[in-house]
């Protein structure tokens, strides 16, 4: 049964599940906005900024749901937290690098996120289901977009192929905390999602292996690497601190004023 009202325990549990998801999308959108005017051509600039707009919009949808469950407003979730209160994974906070790195990172993340959204859709809370439906519709295009960029670079000559292969390898080393659910575990219990969550890494590895094989790329049996530090627990790479400082710098001038 799909419900519109949650118990207190469910409310807290759902907030804990959604914050890491919203944080992933927000930070991804923030990093995406750094690419404005810098994509390989104008057409890609338009596509990528449109994806960025979607990412920020998804985060807003989810923060709004969390805010409606009590506590911080959506803006406070973004602007009033200290760096260690952010729960996004390390992959999304990577500084802007080469185009191949962006493509590899986004392809890996979007493949994972589609599976995570499928799982969230099992939570029978009406506002969340409406949001997830909308997000998945847009995400389908994001995944297609980055997957086609992987194909393009693989087929785009020796040097481009080399670059995307190296980027995929580098990205793989950074996904340790992507599948971690630590603080959200009580919520996963409540909605009987533990087993689904535990199965995600294997499902994701199988999907990626399929992609590698279809492109004739070498696939070595891969396991999800151990997270050296865990973004889901608020442990972030050095590169996140300048991002956070920049993001909050204007609002900090008059935190209680209208902007």
């Amino acid at each position: 049964m799909i419900v519109e009202i949650l118990t207190d325990a469910e409310r807290v549990a759902l907030q804990r599940i959604l914050i890491p998801v919203a944080d992933d999308e927000w930070i991804l959108g923030h990093r995406g906005s750094e690419w404005l005017g810098l994509a390989p051509d104008l057409e890609e600039d338009l596509a990528l900024s449109s994806i960025t707009q979607d990412n920020l919009g998804h985060a807003q949808l989810l923060y709004d749901i969390v805010a409606d469950l009590g506590g911080y407003s959506a803006d406070q979730w973004v602007y009033a937290r200290s760096p260690s209160e952010w729960k996004h994974c390390q992959l999304v906070e990577m500084s802007r690098q080469d185009w191949a790195d962006l493509v590899a990172g986004r392809f890996v993340y979007e493949t994972f996120d589609e599976m995570r959204l499928q799982m969230l859709n099992l939570i029978a809370y009406q506002p969340l289901q409406a949001a997830v439906t909308k997000i998945r519709q847009e995400k389908m295009y994001h995944l297609q977009h980055f997957e086609s960029w992987v194909d393009t670079l693989v087929l785009g000559g020796q040097s481009a192929r080399q670059r995307i292969l190296e980027a995929l390898t580098d990205v793989y080393a950074q996904i340790g905390d992507m599948f971690v659910w630590e603080e959200t575990n009580p919520g996963l219990d409540l909605w009987h999602l533990n087993e689904t969550a535990r199965g995600l890494p294997q499902k994701w590895v199988t999907r990626l292996q399929g992609k590698y094989e279809s492109l004739g790329l070498p696939w070595h049996t891969r396991v999800i690497p151990q997270a050296e530090s865990n973004g889901r627990l608020g442990q972030h790479a050095e590169s996140f601190f300048p991002l956070w400082k920049e993001m909050t710098s204007v609002r900090e001038i008059a935190p209680l004023s209208g902007w």
């Binding site: 404005l36 005017g37 920020l56 923060y63 993001m247």
Partner: peptide, 20 residues
């Protein structure tokens, strides 16, 4: 990247996209 509210960030990102 420095926009002080969610709404402003969305609007400014969209504006820059329009200019491109």
């Amino acid at each position: 990247t420095k926009a002080p509210t969610i709404r402003r960030k969305l609007a400014l990102n969209a504006k820059v996209q329009d200019e491109i």
